[in-house]
Lab assay of single mutants.
Amino acid sequence: DNLVIALHSYEPSHDGDLGFEKGEQLRILEQSGEWWKAQSLTTGQEGFIPFNFVAKA
Rank of each mutant, 00 (worst) to 15 (best):
Asp1Met: 11
Asn2Trp: 13
Asn2Ser: 09
Asn2Pro: 06
Asn2Arg: 09
Asn2Met: 14
Val4Phe: 15
Val4Tyr: 15
Ile5Trp: 09
Ile5Thr: 08
Ala6Asp: 01
Ala6Pro: 00
Ala6Leu: 04
Ala6Thr: 07
Ala6Phe: 04
Leu7Lys: 05
Leu7Tyr: 04
Leu7Phe: 06
His8Lys: 14
His8Pro: 00
Ser9Gln: 07
Ser9Ile: 04
Ser9Phe: 06
Tyr10Thr: 02
Glu11Tyr: 15
Glu11Thr: 14
Pro12Gln: 07
Ser13Ile: 15
Ser13Asp: 09
Ser13Lys: 15
His14Phe: 11
Asp15Met: 10
Asp15His: 11
Asp15Trp: 12
Gly16Ser: 09
Gly16His: 15
Asp17Tyr: 15
Asp17Glu: 15
Leu18Trp: 04
Gly19Pro: 10
Glu21Tyr: 11
Glu21Leu: 12
Lys22Pro: 03
Gly23Thr: 03
Gly23Glu: 02
Gly23Gln: 01
Glu24Thr: 05
Gln25Gly: 07
Leu26Ile: 06
Leu26Gly: 01
Arg27Gln: 08
Arg27Thr: 06
Arg27Ala: 06
Ile28Leu: 10
Ile28Asp: 03
Ile28Ser: 00
Ile28Gly: 02
Leu29Tyr: 04
Glu30Tyr: 10
Glu30Cys: 13
Glu30Val: 09
Glu30Ser: 11
Glu30Phe: 10
Gln31Pro: 05
Gln31Leu: 07
Gln31Asn: 11
Gln31Cys: 15
Ser32Cys: 15
Ser32His: 13
Gly33Asn: 05
Glu34Pro: 13
Glu34Val: 14
Glu34Ser: 12
Glu34Phe: 15
Glu34Asp: 11
Glu34Ile: 14
Trp35Cys: 11
Trp35Asp: 03
Trp35Val: 09
Trp36Glu: 00
Trp36Leu: 10
Trp36Phe: 08
Trp36Pro: 04
Lys37Cys: 12
Lys37Asp: 00
Gln39Met: 11
Gln39Ala: 07
Gln39Leu: 10
Gln39Glu: 09
Gln39Arg: 10
Gln39Tyr: 09
Ser40Glu: 01
Leu41His: 03
Thr42Ser: 13
Thr42Leu: 13
Thr43Pro: 00
Thr43Lys: 02
Gly44Met: 09
Gly44Leu: 09
Gly44Ile: 02
Gln45Ala: 11
Gln45Ile: 10
Glu46Arg: 08
Gly47Pro: 00
Phe48Asn: 08
Phe48Val: 08
Phe48Glu: 02
Ile49Glu: 01
Ile49Arg: 00
Ile49Trp: 02
Pro50Glu: 03
Pro50Cys: 09
Pro50Tyr: 09
Pro50Gln: 05
Pro50Lys: 06
Phe51Ile: 09
Phe51Arg: 15
Phe51Glu: 07
Val54Asn: 04
Ala55Leu: 09
Ala57Thr: 12
